[in-house]
């Protein structure tokens, strides 16, 4: 009974934290656009907190820079279980154009923290970001929660 109740609650109340670990800002701008009345993240029960201690979903943007090497792991550790990491944009997956000779990036993000889903695009459209969060987050949070409860 409690577990099903938890599942239902987790599906409809997702708290999001955006972590920009060295991107060009483009993805963050598109994430802000998701808040606008046209896309309206909050109608799906997603709330952007930007506080890792309250987050269910961590949205990672940007290729990892030197300063984020340790900080990223620390932020991941701060988020309470169950948590889902979604990589937004090309940078967290491959480093995009910055992963070349001379670039000081440490992509991919999956070397540092486990990534559950990735949205390619430079930057992805707000509707794609919304779609991905809704497709992955409720199920993954509920599933991870069930493993933890056992």
């Amino acid at each position: 009974m409690l577990k099903t109740l938890k599942d239902i609650v987790r599906k409809s109340s997702i708290h999001v934290c955006i972590v920009n670990c060295g991107g060009c800002n483009g993805c963050d701008v598109e994430l802000v656009a998701c808040l606008s009345p046209r896309y309206d993240l909050e109608q799906y029960g997603i709330y952007v907190h930007n506080n890792p201690r309250e987050a269910d979903v961590i949205l990672v943007t940007g290729a990892v820079t030197e300063q984020w090497r340790e900080n990223l792991r620390r932020i991941y550790a701060k988020a309470p279980e169950p948590k889902v990491v979604v990589a937004v944009g090309n940078c967290p997956q491959s480093g995009d154009v910055f992963a070349q000779e001379g670039g000081r990036v440490l992509a991919p993000v999956s070397d540092f923290i486990p990534v559950d889903a990735a949205i390619p695009g430079c930057p992805p459209r707000p509707s794609e970001i919304l779609d991905a969060i809704l497709a992955v987050a409720p199920g993954a949070i509920a599933a991870k929660g069930r493993i933890q409860d056992k």
């Binding site: 920009n20 670990c21 060295g22 991107g23 060009c24 800002n25 483009g26 993805c27 963050d28 701008v29 940007g62 290729a63 820079t65 030197e66 300063q67 984020w68 995009d96 154009v97 910055f98 070349q100 000779e101 001379g102 670039g103 000081r104 990036v105 430079c122 930057p123």
Partner: peptide, 28 residues
């Protein structure tokens, strides 16, 4: 926190590659 070394990457590349990088200095 966001230092990526763009100017260094641009060295020795053609403008077609550099303009792509210049665009990604800042998203706004």
């Amino acid at each position: 926190y966001v230092h990526r070394g763009i100017e260094k990457i641009m060295e020795g590349k053609t403008w077609q590659k550099c303009i792509y990088l210049a665009e990604r200095i800042c998203g706004i």
